[in-house]
Amino acid sequence: MIRVLIADDEPLIRAGIRMILTSADDIEVVAEAADGRAAVELARSHRVDVVLLDIRMPVMDGLTALAELGRAAPGARALVLTTFGERENVLRALRQGGAGFLLKDSAPGELIGAVRAAAAGDAYLSPAATRHVADSLVAGPAEARGEEARRRVGVLGEREREVLALLGEGLSNADAGRRLHMSEATVKTYVSRILAKLECENRVQAALLARDAGLGI
């Protein structure tokens, strides 16, 4: 059972997310928080697997809470809840260890899938938001970004590029393994190697780089 904490200062948002998540047989909402500080304490005391974390909250904002979660509940994976208007904060969240991001108005199936992906140790990129956010996170025109991305990806071997392309599609390690006919553990090893070579801090950054480089497109 995946243990989830919902952290958002809007009661209606929390209620809606809870209703969606509890419809899944493998997900349990064990706590809710209306501010970042409470989220950190509840994540520690309830031993949660996944935290759905709003960026804008009182007492302690989501970005500060994300950094605290890494120390207080290192086993918890944080998914950042965002809107298009908050896209400038997404890269900061990813650098601080966020497992990915999705929009607050995401479809119910997408929300459930994101929680499952995070619990499995994979990153989640909201298909509806990724390109919109990436355009704001990476400086310079699209052509220049693509050229820089292709230069960086050039250090990878053929198999590493194939794995990176699947990261760009948002596939989990298990799904990428099935696609490439290799074990999940082998894919995980490739991902670690790719992150090191590309100097990316997490899978999400690598996935954005893959998209800018045109891999898998």
Rank of each mutant, 00 (worst) to 15 (best):
residue 143 E to L: 13
residue 85 G to C: 07
residue 161 R to M: 08
residue 86 E to V: 05
residue 135 D to S: 14
residue 210 A to N: 09
residue 122 D to W: 11
residue 105 D to P: 04
residue 116 R to D: 02
residue 209 L to W: 09
residue 56 R to G: 01
residue 206 A to F: 01
residue 154 G to V: 04
residue 19 M to H: 05
residue 26 D to F: 03
residue 49 D to P: 04
residue 183 S to E: 06
residue 202 N to G: 09
residue 60 M to V: 05
residue 191 V to H: 03
residue 133 V to D: 00
residue 67 A to M: 00
residue 3 R to A: 13
residue 198 L to E: 01
residue 153 V to M: 11
residue 121 G to N: 04
residue 99 A to Q: 04
residue 66 L to P: 14
residue 130 T to Q: 12
residue 146 G to R: 15
residue 130 T to L: 13
residue 5 L to M: 01
residue 38 A to K: 13
residue 45 S to L: 13
residue 65 A to L: 03
residue 151 R to M: 05
residue 162 E to Y: 04
residue 170 G to C: 07
residue 131 R to Q: 12
residue 63 L to S: 08
residue 136 S to F: 13
residue 31 A to R: 08
residue 19 M to S: 08
residue 203 R to L: 11
residue 54 D to C: 07
residue 48 V to L: 04
residue 15 A to E: 14
residue 104 K to Y: 07
residue 208 L to W: 15
residue 64 T to P: 00
residue 214 G to P: 14
residue 149 A to N: 11
residue 66 L to W: 06
residue 16 G to P: 08
residue 159 R to L: 00
residue 79 L to T: 08
residue 80 V to H: 06
residue 68 E to F: 06
residue 79 L to E: 14
residue 107 A to G: 02
residue 75 G to R: 10
residue 76 A to W: 11
residue 164 L to S: 08
residue 42 L to M: 11
residue 37 R to A: 15
residue 163 V to S: 05
residue 19 M to C: 00
residue 91 L to A: 12
residue 57 M to H: 08
residue 69 L to M: 11
residue 1 M to R: 11
residue 67 A to V: 04
residue 58 P to A: 03
residue 59 V to M: 12
residue 149 A to V: 12
residue 217 I to S: 09
residue 151 R to N: 08
residue 175 D to G: 02
residue 143 E to G: 06
residue 178 R to P: 00
residue 169 E to A: 03
residue 208 L to C: 14
residue 89 N to L: 03
residue 67 A to I: 01
residue 189 T to K: 12
